[in-house]
Design a protein around this nucleic acid. Structure first.
Length: 122
DNA sequence: ATTCTCACA
DNA sequence: TGTGAGGA
């Protein structure tokens, strides 16, 4: 785990910005007994992702939404080998490199299908 | 030496 | 967002 100082040089963000993003709910950091923030490699990646999104004329509120949606998508991938396929929820754009339809159907039948989280409206 | 929270000439 | 105060 890194300190905020390391996080700064690793992300190019100021400590001020990092603390602000945390307060805004864009990222939740761990704390030590002494109340100091601790950053994992995952946190660094998320910080970098936030930096990217923010540099593309997006407000903190929008970035917060995007981040939460990405987290949901990750949770919905029970089988690592099929991460590219998102069934019954989002797109099925990128087809898995399966030779025939029968094999694909077999794979789909074997995986745990999870319902898409309920949304506000349709 | 570092980080933390809070507040603003 | 930066920066300095005052404490940990």
């Amino acid at each position: 785990m890194y300190s905020i100082g390391i996080a700064q040089q690793k992300t190019g963000l100021s400590a001020r910005q990092i603390r602000y993003y945390e307060k805004m709910g864009l990222i939740q950091l761990k704390r030590t007994s002494g109340n100091q923030r601790r950053f994992s490699d995952e946190d660094i990646k998320l910080l970098l992702r936030i930096k990217e999104l923010l540099s593309q004329n997006l407000d903190v509120k929008s970035v917060k939404e995007i981040i939460s949606n990405e987290k949901e998508t990750k949770t919905l991938s029970p089988i690592p080998e099929l991460e590219k396929i998102k069934v019954f929820g989002t797109n099925l754009t990128s087809l898995y490199p399966v030779s025939d339809r029968a094999e694909l159907v077999s794979l789909l039948n074997s995986m745990e299908i999870k319902e898409k989280p309920k949304e506000q409206d349709e």
